[in-house]
Simulated scan of single mutants.
Amino acid sequence: MTPTTARARFTDLLAAEWIKLWSLRSTGWSLLAGALAVLGINVGTAYDHYKYWDQYDESSRAAFLRNDIGLVDAFTANSGMVLVLVLGAIGAVAVTGEYGSGLIRTTLAAVPARRSVMAAKALVVTAVTAVFGTALALVSFLLTQVVLDGRDAGLTLGHPGALRLVLASGLLAPVAALVGMALGAVARHSAASVVAATGLLLMVPLFLSEDRYLTAVLRHAQPFTAWQRLADFGRFGEVAHPWTTGGAWLVYLVWALGAAALAVTVVHRRDQ
């Protein structure tokens, strides 16, 4: 009888992809650097408000509380851009690192089911970045509110919009990582993938105005703009074409599923 090779179980593929992700030195260092940068920006912003609180007049202080600026300090737009940049790069390198080292040949020789391999990679990347992003958003919220509590301006997680801000900020991480992963599968080059992810996720929304309906719809369909809607950074003024938080959550879902599907399809149809 001819011995047969046991087919790899999907749990084995998940374990292998977990090991490969953390075997990349850039993964741990990038997450650490990203976390420190995000916390530094947000806590620094909150501390600036704390430090100069006495220099604000009474109406400015009232406006700070009325407009929930504490939520803005909890996860600022600048920190959101840093998160997208770092996580997009991590997602891209999770794929391109394997192509660059040649490990992909060994992987696909051992497991010819390319779609299963890439699906496992996508699930591992999603799980790791979702936990990282949510934990980071929660820690950032708690630290910034501790700082603001020194001026009786801190908020709790029970405050309207606070929990949504934490979840939206946390889940922006896996969305960015999956987009980077998809671009990495297409380009197979680290630098090109990172640049493409940065341009797609952060630069494109800058060229889309909300003054016209069509460009407003296209802008609202971008993940970073969806995060801004969920974080409710538009609370300070009326927009020409408003949209819903439900629509913003849908943007997250479509981009995440679309990016994962693209990565799986590209790897299945292209040569090593």
Rank of each mutant, 00 (worst) to 15 (best):
I104L: 09
A162E: 09
L143T: 03
T156F: 04
A135S: 15
S101T: 15
T27V: 10
W29T: 14
F236S: 10
P205G: 09
L65I: 12
A261V: 10
L167W: 13
E17G: 03
V86N: 07
A187M: 13
V93A: 07
A110F: 11
D152Y: 08
V139G: 06
A110Q: 14
T265V: 13
T245C: 04
R7N: 10
L13T: 04
R212S: 06
I69H: 10
A62V: 13
A173Q: 01
W249G: 01
A8F: 04
G158T: 09
S193N: 11
R7Q: 11
A221R: 00
V217C: 04
L14Y: 00
A162W: 01
V117H: 02
P3F: 11
G246T: 10
L85G: 06
W29S: 10
G161V: 05
G70K: 06
K121E: 05
A248P: 00
K121I: 12
A94Q: 08
V194S: 06
V125Y: 00
A176W: 04
H241L: 03
D68M: 08
E98K: 05
S101I: 09
T244M: 04
W53T: 02
A256R: 06
R212H: 13
L201Y: 01
L14H: 00
L13H: 00
Q272L: 15
A37R: 09
A46L: 11
R9T: 13
F236W: 03
A113D: 15
M181S: 02
V195S: 05
W227D: 04
V93F: 08
G102T: 05
R105S: 13
R114K: 06
I90W: 07
Q55G: 08
V86W: 03
S193P: 02
W22Q: 02
V251W: 01
L250T: 14
